[in-house]
């Protein structure tokens, strides 16, 4: 990635009394890219995003957003950053259109510019039928769109999305993905947090793994990524596939209604396996990783932590604090 790093986080920590929500987070997000922020529930994703959104003061470490420090100059950060919170608060008795207009006014835009921008955003997120309705009647998915539209009112160059897809139907998820990719294409740096990894897989260029408030180091992520993982194979004739796998000396396979899972180390080996199975004359109908890239890495990292066997630098550094 040669684009400029728009979000730079170094050694950030934040605790609430005894609870260390974020212990040691370091990562970068580049202009024009979508970075996934991945972690289990309670791993500190929201706290981290709140610090990036100028709402919480970090206890230690430094944050730069579009070149500004959110603590020293929150105003500069706010005019460059759009934040979509995980809590879908909206002004219940105010219409969708007015909500966006008022948000525009709060970003110090003129009344005319706010009106115009509100119309653009209503079209962008597809809320035309609800535009004049008070926001309290919106469904969860519609509120989600309104929340996204509100984050985009001032055309930010940095976008922080906290669980943007939760509550969206499949069609809306596809729209969200397209929209986020389009924004990234326009040069916006996007940080998306979620624990629905499949959906992040399809939109993210990069990932930051957060567990117990610590971001996993790049080497460690690389190592997890390279771990043997399951590929799922489906053939027209299941018995033929089984036989071929036995002939190739691949024991320990499991078969379920989705197909047969085979442990494979890396994509090269997977490609070779496919070629050999085809060579064996097996009629393959599906061949692919059993879980997405992010999910595989995430699960492997989580497993490493649970076993306590992985002395990764980031995690030991975190636990010494």
């Amino acid at each position: 990635m040669n684009a400029a790093a728009v979000i730079v986080v170094e050694g950030v920590s934040r605790s609430f009394g005894e609870v260390h929500a974020v212990r040691d987070a370091s990562f970068e997000v580049h202009a024009g890219s979508v970075t996934a922020l991945i972690g289990p529930n309670g791993s500190g994703k929201t706290t981290l995003l709140l610090m990036l959104a100028t709402l919480l003061r970090p206890d230690a470490g430094s944050i730069r957003i579009a070149g500004h420090d959110p603590v020293a100059d929150p105003r500069a950060v706010r005019s460059a950053m759009g934040w979509m919170p995980d809590v879908l608060g909206s002004w219940g008795s105010i219409s969708v259109r007015r909500t966006l207009e008022i948000t525009g006014r709060l970003y110090e835009r003129s009344a005319a510019a706010s009106r115009e921008r509100a119309q653009q955003l209503i079209e962008l997120v597809g809320l035309e039928p609800q535009a004049e309705q008070p926001t309290r009647v919106l469904s969860r998915g519609q509120k989600q769109r309104l929340s996204l539209a509100r984050a985009l009112v001032h055309e930010p160059s940095v976008l922080l999305l906290d669980e943007p897809a939760s509550g969206l139907d499949p069609a809306a998820r596809v729209e969200l993905r397209t929209l986020v990719r389009r924004l990234a294409g326009e040069g916006v740096a996007v940080l998306v947090s979620s624990h629905v990894l499949a959906e992040l897989d399809e939109m993210a260029d990069a990932a930051v793994y957060l567990d117990h408030g610590v971001t996993a180091s790049a080497e460690r992520v690389e190592r997890s990524r390279a771990q043997a993982r399951d590929w799922r194979i489906r053939a027209i004739d299941g018995a033929q596939l089984e036989a071929a796998l036995v002939r190739l000396g691949l024991a320990g396979t499991t078969t379920d209604h989705l197909g047969t899972s085979v442990s494979v180390a890396g994509e090269r080996e997977a490609a070779e396996l496919l070629a050999r199975l085809v060579g064996e004359g097996v009629a393959i109908s599906a061949f692919g990783p059993a879980v997405g890239d992010l999910e595989h890495t995430f699960l492997d990292l989580a497993r490493g932590d649970a076993a306590g066997a992985d002395p990764a630098p980031a995690s030991t550094e975190g636990s010494e604090r």
Partner: peptide, 17 residues
């Protein structure tokens, strides 16, 4: 009340002080 409704933070991230 706004904090409970989740509308305080969305106002705080705007340029309103």
């Amino acid at each position: 009340g706004d904090r409970d409704a989740g509308t305080l933070a969305t106002t705080q991230v705007t340029l309103a002080s």
